[in-house]
Design a protein around this nucleic acid. Sequence first.
DNA 1: TGATATGTTATCTT
DNA 2: CAAGATAACATATC
Length: 328
Amino acid sequence: MPELPEVETLKLGLRKYLVGHTIKDIEVKVPKLFVGDKRNVIGAKVVDVKRIGKGLILELNNNYVLAVHLKMTGQLVYRDEKTKNLTLSVKVGGETLPSKYTHIIFKLKTLASRRSGQKSNLKTTRLAQALAKRATQNSKLQDESNEAFLYYNDLRQFGWIKVVKKDKVMQVPFFKEMGPEPPVVPLSGTMEGQALLTINKFREILQKSGLVVKVLLMDQKKIGGIGNIYANDALYKAGIDPRRKAKQISSKEADKLYDAILAVLKAGLEFGGSSDENFVNVLGEEGAYQNHFLIYGRKSEKCKKCGSIIQKIRLGGRGTYFCENCQR
DNA sequence: TGATATGTTATCTT
DNA sequence: CAAGATAACATATC
């Protein structure tokens, strides 16, 4: 369920809370979820976080990165002194961390010098000197209070975290094969090398594919970042029947669908993602887009536009919701 | 109890 | 070979 808006929401949170921390140790409780040698990242500092489609890249200050995919039920939750008492918004497992579903624990530390150092060295006031002296005296205490954790929780254990050399990120199969993604966030938000979906490219992808349009939207090799929720909502918004062949979509309809895709992804972002199932942000808080689904999950309810009963079928093995009257 | 939910990947089929 | 279809993965919930 974490799709582009959810992963982007998490990315922004990780930038705020995780960046600047040094990885002191990694406890891997379920080995199959952690790929690679953890010794290559222990001791390194997280310097930035990027996203490719539904994937995350934690950039480190050495030659490695941590590539992350949450699949359906993965969570990355940050905890330190200030946030340790926050409860986790989930419908399963415990509210406190680590929980029954915490499979990987990153033990982190921020250096006291990062917050109190540098600038004060440039100043020569007595006050600055006194503060610096006190900071040194308290450094041991501060080190302890600066201890933090990043918990990887995953109910279904489908996700993964991979240790990858920085220059090999785009060679990880999932990233290498990913199609262009809809441009809904500032360019700085995505990984270098990740293509963006233009309207012309979108028309071309539709024309070239023999797939049913909804299955195509969700195919990460064709377009990156769209999953079941936003595919359903975008097709509803554009008034297009999800069962239609992509090839049969006219260029006018393609434009409408393109706009609808950008609109629903942006709506998802504005609500901090959707937490219909397990998604939570970096602090373990729910998003709110689930309260604004246009059609996803509304089986047997009335269509908001015309009042017809919403149908549910299965396309490409996934639940598909649509209004027979409004989507043609 | 068995069907269902989900995203990607492996494998089978055309 | 390629594109598409389908099973597999894990596990709580209906």
